[in-house]
Amino acid sequence: MLLIDCPYCGAARPEIEFRHGGEAHVARPRDPSALDDAAWAEFLYFRANPKGLAAERWRHVAGCGRFFNAIRDTVSDRFVCTYPAGEPRPDVESASVGASA
């Protein structure tokens, strides 16, 4: 079981308290009616699913209840960092990902 740092609780908490919420930073368009079908389909269904660092939404559902974002390495399953929802994706591409958890 992984430990996940909840940015609202300020603590590492067990994975089973959390729920995964898909890719982060996919903002719902302000005016969906302004999008053509292709753009809407892109928003609805297309996700990056990268190998390596991925920005994801998580919710501390059995904790403080808040949604937040995390950068997780999909190869090593390591959480690189977590940050409150609404904040921009931190620049961690260059960070040392292999460091001990």
Partner: peptide, 13 residues
Amino acid sequence: LHHMEDYLQTEFP
């Protein structure tokens, strides 16, 4: 409830 919280917290905060 989860669906509502999702929209409330992340789309309409």
